[in-house]
Design a protein around this nucleic acid. Structure first.
Length: 552
RNA sequence: GCCCUCGUAGUUGAAUGGAUACAAUAUCUCCCUCCGAAGGAGGUGGUACAGGUUCGAUUCCUGUCGAGGGCACCA
């Protein structure tokens, strides 16, 4: 629909001799202004040096001829020169019928038509418990994956896990110190990591031991150590799989730092000859200053690869295993600087890979009660957060499955409701609200709508399909769903869909409160609206990865 | 010290340079004899500060203040 209007506005501008002007067609903030609005007249006025109101009047006249009677009922000029388009009731009825009839295909688009998109997200570290940052990465990444898929692309989900590096050495040091040769729980390993991490900071001897362990792990020659490493890794990875299951996410490819280290080292060493990297104080570095960035170490003076070198190795490994047109990496925003340098270096080695790669940063989850640190003992793990919210949701839901669905809805909503890059301020005292703007609000609206349909099945109703002259606001909102999903996908911003669905749920709740559906006037028409709402909400929540409970 | 984000009702968030800055929450009123009150209807309340560009600035530019993150051997 938006496309159709955009095209008509473009043609109208052409006829007015302003074909070059860039303009937008969008949903006005206030529905009373119409179903679509365009700033085309104001944009053209600037370019042509004419009065915007006069130009808007002219555009409105031309536009009403461009759009056929069944599409727009009228076009009006308002404010400084907005041209507002109000859809014809027939066009709205048609779209609502489509929202019902198309089922799973409702809202599917072609923004990423035929593309193969590789998306890396979650990236937890074995030997550490999964914390909230990884949860955020997972929830955002999974939703992006689904939004991109919905635009007719093939999405390949990848997870990159840090199974080597200093944090692993710290955990193994802790396990050795505790005399554990057979770790069985992730918690056990997490505790060992915390112990190793503390000792590393407090004791120079421990630091030296951990550093030595780190190199031994890279070397892989110490059988006893590697056996402990393998066992600990398996336990951690298995714990992650349990969480992925609960979160409703899955991966097509797993990459591990233990396998990116070698290619990373090799490629960086090759890069020295090409003048991309250089040696400095025994380390191999990339001088970011040549690109207005800062210098980063890629290989340490001890010969171990850093995160940056491993990322170079990873980029090539991905290329080897997965054919892709685009590559998206979702990580915390603290890595923005590192990714800039990494991509600059990669661009010198492999221009085509760098060009198709984009880093999508997500914010932190910050506590109102102060910084999270393992030292303070107030680190919130993904598991503990989920458990807490499930407990809260259980107060109203005896069924544990539903309590879990509601809790996940609440958590995912909190993460997805705002622009991906910004931090989330979380008050652990107040916990998560299950009312108002929230996941459960959307779920509840859906459950109630389904319940109406359920009831309607057992009652007799008229076959006549009459409808009021003016479409309901709810219907007018449903029309916009495909545009919203397309925009959320192209801007990599699930929050746009969250905001839309929240508005949609509110509109349904008002409709539900004001209108008697079963046994009311125009029953068949209202039931159709209910079905259109249900399908739109169901599809929308699916794209966010928010579960839809049967009842609440 | 340098670089990057960001400052919007008491609080948490919206608003591709556009219309009377939009919600939720908290608070104050109402509404279950009627399809499910995790709901609906209404009230109170806001763009950090100072300049600039523009017909028009929460948005762009400059400065001040404040917060977060990054800046050679961590990830």
């Amino acid at each position: 629909m938006e496309e159709r209007i955009k095209k008509a506005v473009g043609e109208a501008l052409m006829k007015m001799g302003a074909g070059e002007v860039a303009f937008v067609v969008e949903r006005p903030a206030d529905m009373r202004h119409g179903d679509y609005t365009t700033n085309a007249a104001m944009a053209a006025a600037k370019k042509l040096g004419k009065n915007s109101r006069e130009l808007a009047d002219e555009l409105a006249r031309v536009l009403i001829d461009e759009l056929d009677k069944d599409t727009a009922s009228y076009v009006a000029v308002a404010g400084p020169g907005f041209v507002n388009i109000t859809l014809a009731p027939e066009a709205i009825a048609l779209a609502v019928a489509e929202a019902d009839a198309k089922k799973e295909e409702w809202g599917m688009g072609s923004v990423n038509s035929e593309q193969r998109v590789l998306i890396e997200y979650t990236d937890p570290n074995p030997f550490k418990e999964m914390h909230i940052g990884h949860l955020m990465s997972n929830v955002i990444g999974e939703s992006l994956a689904r939004l991109i898929e919905n635009e007719n692309a093939t999405v390949i989900r990848a997870n990159y896990q840090g199974d080597v590096g200093p944090h692993v050495a710290k955990a193994l040091w802790g396990l050795q110190r505790a005399g554990t040769s057979e770790p069985v729980t992730a918690k056990e390993i997490g505790t060992a990591y915390a112990a190793g991490s503390l000792a590393y900071e407090d004791s120079p001897e421990a630091k030296a031991e951990v550093d030595a362990l780190n190199q031994e792990i890279y070397a892989g020659k110490n059988h006893e150590l590697m056996e402990l490493w393998r066992k600990g890794r398996d336990v951690s990875l298995e714990a992650f799989e349990q969480l992925y299951k609960i979160l409703g996410t899955h991966f097509d490819y797993y990459f591990y730092e233990s396998e990116t280290a070698d290619p990373g080292l090799r490629i960086v060493h090759d890069g020295i000859k090409q003048g991309v990297f250089e040696e400095s104080e025994g380390a191999i570095i990339y001088r970011g200053e040549k690109k207005g960035l800062h210098t980063l170490v890629f290989i340490t003076s001890k010969g171990t690869p850093t995160y940056e070198a491993k990322d170079i190795g990873l980029a090539f490994l991905k290329e080897e295993r997965v054919q892709s047109d685009r590559s998206i990496i979702v990580t915390a925003s603290e890595q923005i600087g590192h990714f800039k340098v990494f991509l600059a270096a990669l661009n010198e080695i492999a221009h085509l890979i760098a060009k198709k790669t984009v880093h999508v940063p997500h914010g932190f989850l910050r506590l109102t009660t102060g910084k999270m640190s393992s030292r303070e003992g107030n680190v919130i793990t993904a598991e503990s957060l989920i458990k807490d919210i499930i407990k809260k949701a259980s107060e109203k839901n005896a069924d544990p499955l539903i309590a879990e669905q509601v809790a996940l809805g609440a958590i995912k909503y909190m993460i997805l409701r705002q622009a991906p890059g910004s931090d989330i301020i979380f008050d652990p005292e107040k916990s998560l609200s299950l009312e108002g703007d929230s996941g459960p609000y959307l779920q509840y609206a859906l459950v109630r709508a389904r319940s109406v349909l359920e009831k309607a099945r057992s009652t007799k109703h008229e076959a006549r399909n009459e409808k009021p002259e003016m479409p309901y606001r709810l219907e007018r909102l449903v029309v916009h769903f495909p545009e919203v999903t397309a925009r959320a996908a192209s801007e990599l911003a699930p929050n746009l869909l969250v905001n839309y669905l929240t508005e949609l749920a509110g509109e349904w709740n008002s409709f539900y409160a004001q209108e008697k559906i079963i046994g009311g006037e125009n029953e068949a028409h209202k039931l159709m609206i209910a079905r259109a709402f249900i399908n739109t909400m169901t599809r929308g929540l699916a794209l966010l990865g928010i579960p839809t409970p049967e009842r609440m």
